[in-house]
Computed example of a mutant assay.
Amino acid sequence: MIFLEYPRCTTCKKAKKWLEEHEVSFTDRNIKLENPTAEELKEWYTRGNLPLKKFFNTSGILYKEMALKDKLATMTEEEQLTLLATDGMLVKRPLIIAEDFVLVGFKEQEWEEKLL
């Protein structure tokens, strides 16, 4: 299982602490240093059966600076994936990538259901 995080993100710190406290084993990946590729993102959002919009960090500075709220609706899936792959700060975090599911963001109840 992969845990994608931005180490300075308070939600990511909370999620990582939760994983460690519940003795969930994972491989850590810094999303800023090792941004997901468009291919990875496509695989993950398909595996997670989630809308692609869920993978955007809508509260992030870069998202707001680029006015993506208005642009995403007119972009193709391929354009959105390519954009997400340009900068890890555009990607919602933390992310849990498991063999048969994907978790986007830290919702403790959802994590308990899937990971414990």
Rank of each mutant, 00 (worst) to 15 (best):
K107H: 14
M1H: 13
T86G: 10
F3G: 07
P7N: 00
L115N: 02
L83H: 03
R47I: 13
E112Q: 12
T10M: 12
K14P: 14
K16Y: 02
E34Q: 09
L62M: 12
F26W: 05
K54M: 11
L41C: 00
E110A: 15
A85S: 06
S59Q: 12
A38Y: 02
M89C: 03
A38P: 06
A73S: 10
E43R: 09
F3R: 02
M75I: 04
D100V: 12
C9F: 01
S25F: 14
L4F: 04
L19R: 01
C9A: 01
P94L: 01
K64L: 00
E21H: 02
P7K: 06
L33K: 15
K13T: 00
I96Y: 09
G105F: 09
A73D: 15
G60I: 05
M75T: 07
P36Q: 04
L19G: 06
E77K: 14
E77T: 13
R47G: 13
K13Y: 00
K32R: 11
S25L: 15
L83Q: 01
K69D: 15
C9N: 06
A15H: 02
E5A: 14
T37L: 06
V91I: 10
F3M: 02
L81F: 09
G88I: 14
K13Q: 03
N49C: 13
E39K: 02
K53H: 14
E5L: 08
V104H: 10
I97M: 08
L72K: 00
K32N: 15
K71V: 00
T46F: 01
I61Q: 15
K71C: 01
F101W: 05
A38S: 13
E5H: 07
A98H: 11
H22N: 11
Y6V: 13
I97W: 04
L68F: 09
I2G: 07
G60A: 12
K16F: 01
